[in-house]
Amino acid sequence: MASSSSTASTEEASTSQPEKKEETKQKKEDDGEESDKESDEKMFECNICLDTAKDAVVSYCGHLFCWPCLYQWLETRPNRQSCPVCKAAISRDKCIPLYGRGGSGKDPRSKIPPRPPPTRTEQTDNGRFSWGSNEGNGGFHMSFGIGAFPFGFFASAFNFGAPGTAPAGANFMTPQQIEEQEFLSKVFIWVALIFIVWLMLA
């Protein structure tokens, strides 16, 4: 809260500067020009290193950075990337390179290797029987088909992976995971068979 008030005050200061500039110009031309130069330089300072922005990029929210500075910040907090100045959502693709007259004209963002693509996937909303949606995993639909209470219990009790990660993992499983799944499916088939036998005997 306090931090936002500080940035707000600097913004206020910068917006009120033009008025001040005009006043000083009217009074003392030399002084006015000097402060003009200074504030002009500050206008194009990177918000992170406070130097004149090199390989400048500007975020959608309008804040200027050196690309190396912003890149380092985005890497520091890859999980919640936010604009250092206003905390708006920000990412590599949500900033625009600035090309002045003197620059090379190359996209500054191409200089630093792009970060690896994220592997995070959104949680899918399948309830207790999360394995049921993994088509081609074999076996489970049949044993659950009985639909009796204990199986519901087993399904939730033996569901080791988090429900969100299980479906994603189905696309590229390690051999170890496949082995575990096969082992589990065997266990469940045996449990199902024992249950059926018990039902018939009872």
Binding site: S3, S5, S6, S9, N47, C69, V85, K87
Partner: peptide, 13 residues
Amino acid sequence: SPALSVQAVCLSI
């Protein structure tokens, strides 16, 4: 945030 500074921290405090 890297846009904060010693001055901003002091002001917050």
